[in-house]
Amino acid sequence: MGRPRKARESDIEEVALALPRAVMVAGWGGLPSYRVSGRFFVGYRTPRPDAVDAESGERLTDVVVFRVPDEGDKLALVQGDGPFFTTPHFDGHASVLLRLAHLGRLSRDELAEVIVDAWRSQAAPTVVGRWEAERRDG
């Protein structure tokens, strides 16, 4: 068995839109945002003063936001050895950030897990339950 494939930017859209009731809409600055039943679960973020490159001081232009189920999940992702981070702007908000430049540090499966968890945290429980039952039975 080979090594897991590294995550690619195209995986974000592919995984997000494969989930029930997920749609892509224009989000921050017209950038892609993925919603389920009108609720945001993942999307690209415009450059902001709270997220800057440590070396250049320039605002990051490649940030993706992922909803997470709760603060515990957020802390696990941010404090883990993965590429996720947060900024003071997101204090108290159940979301984590990821630079596209660091996306390849995740496997496609790891990225998919974060996207699915984001979707689960925002989708209606009946939609999630039906989707999980189909996966179990299928």
Rank of each mutant, 00 (worst) to 15 (best):
M1N: 12
G2T: 15
R3D: 15
K6V: 14
A7V: 02
R8Q: 14
S10I: 14
I12W: 00
I12S: 00
E13Y: 04
E14P: 13
A16W: 01
M24D: 12
M24S: 15
V25L: 06
V25T: 06
A26I: 11
G30P: 04
G30L: 04
R35W: 09
R35T: 10
V36F: 01
G38R: 01
F40W: 09
F40M: 12
F41M: 06
G43V: 07
G43Y: 00
R45P: 09
R45F: 11
R45E: 13
P47R: 02
P47I: 08
P49W: 09
D53F: 05
E55M: 12
E58L: 13
V63L: 08
F66G: 02
R67P: 13
P69T: 06
P69W: 01
D70E: 09
D73C: 14
D73M: 14
D73S: 15
L75H: 14
Q79Y: 13
Q79L: 14
G82S: 00
P83H: 03
T86P: 10
P88M: 01
F90P: 06
H93Q: 13
A94F: 11
L97R: 01
L97M: 07
L97N: 04
L100Y: 06
L100G: 01
A101W: 12
E110A: 05
L111R: 03
A112L: 00
E113N: 12
V116N: 00
V116D: 00
W119G: 02
R120V: 15
A124E: 13
T126F: 10
V127L: 05
V127N: 02
W131E: 08
E132C: 02
A133I: 12
A133S: 10
E134T: 08
E134H: 13
